[in-house]
Amino acid sequence: MITIAPSLIYLSRADWGADPAHPRLGYAVAPAARTEAIVHHTVIVDSDATKNVWETLDEVKAARPTFDFDPRYGTDDSWTPAMFVEAVYRNLTAAPAAAGRAR
């Protein structure tokens, strides 16, 4: 545990009682909230667990990543969720040099 400021401490993985099932990163909280924060599982899950798990465009489309926003923004036939996903996929998978020129 590291004191960052009088009102802020940094809890390490060990402070959280990290385990292999739910690897956790450190977390900054107010000292008075330390116990409460741990009890309520306000944790940060290791980014390794949420790194990209999809490879191809078809896999991304099949996962329906825009599903939660489709009823709000997905009703315009001129700009469908599929078009959005394809555009984002192409942007993210473009070679860095090409992406730079595109900007």
Binding site: I4, L25, G26, A28, I44, V45, T50, V53, R64, P65
Partner: peptide, 16 residues
């Protein structure tokens, strides 16, 4: 900055 090691612009989330 609450999380010293959280990259600027990162949005904590879970994949489906």
């Amino acid at each position: 900055v609450e999380l010293a090691d959280q990259p600027r612009g990162a949005v904590p989330h879970y994949l489906p």
